[in-house]
Design a protein around this nucleic acid. Structure first.
Lengths: 193, 193
DNA sequence: CGTCTATTTGAATGTACTCAAAAGCGGTGG
DNA sequence: CCACCGCTTTTGAGTACATTCAAATAGACG
């Protein structure tokens, strides 16, 4: 039980008593999802927060023209959901799919609310999670604004080596905001050196 | 005292007792900053979180080539700092300047930490602030990836009408990730309709 | 009034996209 | 186990969007 990945994740930031651990675990629901399945689809109610124990997930936005924009990848030890819609009780804007078969712990919004209200330590935990998510997105905005496509690709590879192994170039391109063809040509140019 | 802007802001999310209010206010330091002054410069220690009572602020990143990228604007009722560096005790990456003379309440990181530890309600408050900041940045990433420059400009004007009044086109262009010349031509094309 | 910066305009350039076709790769069924 | 199918990746030609550079105009501020 102490070795459960989600408990280890929580333990990075807060220390729980045994009772609190039991309560927390009682709110979680484990799920194994095969490759190429959806945890969330645009327009559906987004009532779950997901913790990835293993496997690979991708959240993306699909615009009117059918273009996919990858918002985030999640591998083991990451939390993921369509946070804007989760918090504001709105229909999802994003799709979340498994790229590899995944083991997931899900926490409902009711569970999330209860956890925060009943155990202030979880308020702290999620404050830190949100803080990290915020600063990560802000760094991404800074890089989108100030770096060339090639530099953004380098940064991505340096920052997320594990993810690079598990997703296609097409998906990385849609995360960087460029076409797969252009990413291919960046890589080709680099290979010459 | 109950009408203090920063208390009203806090009151949107949590209810404080009188003692808690006193303690909170004791941690704040009010400051009036004239137009075109810096609250923070790149490389400096970022130990303060700022709440804007009035005036206009801008946070921007300055890259090697001297290009400015505006990360955020802040008008009354906004919190602002270089959050990544504030949290991680790193030298600032961003510059924060006043565009208009501003009245600021500043909270030190020690104050922030004390507040969160001693009053769990503040843990909740900042969890919500971080959550909103996260979802706002994520929405910005989605729009950067899926919309044209013209559409991003429209969204900006629709979302932040107050800010549009108070900042230059050059600054808006640097927020949208385009050159001032190109923003000018977008506006010229629009004016014809 | 004069200076400084922002904005506009236009021409030349470059970066990244679209479209199309070929090559590569992985999974599936015969 | 091999052959085929579908999708990804590569390559290249032509195009479009956005930038750079330069110069003129307009606005803001002392």
């Amino acid at each position: 039980m102490q070795s459960s990945p989600v408990l280890q994740n929580v333990n990075k930031h807060i220390q729980l008593t045994e009772d609190e651990v039991m309560y927390f675990l009682s709110l979680l629901h484990q799920q194994v999802v095969p490759k190429k399945h959806f945890l969330l689809k645009e327009g559906c109610a987004c009532n779950q927060l997901y913790f990835v124990e293993s496997g690979t997930l991708r959240a993306y936005y699909l615009d009117r023209n059918g273009k996919e924009s990858t918002i985030m990848f999640a591998v083991n030890d990451w939390w993921i959901t369509d946070m804007y819609c989760f918090i504001n009780r709105l229909p999802a804007m994003l799709h979340i799919e498994t790229l590899e078969s995944a083991s997931i712990q899900q926490l409902s919004r009711d569970g999330f609310d209860a956890l925060c209200s009943r155990i202030p330590k979880f308020e702290r935990f999620f404050r830190i999670i949100m803080q990290n998510a915020y600063t990560r997105e802000q760094l991404r905005v800074i890089q989108n604004l100030s770096l060339s496509a090639e530099e953004r690709y380098d940064q991505f590879v340096a920052k997320y080596p594990q993810i690079v192994q598990q997703v296609t170039q097409k998906q990385i391109a849609s995360y960087l905001g460029i076409t797969p063809e252009f990413l291919s040509s960046i890589r080709a140019a680099r290979a010459k050196k």
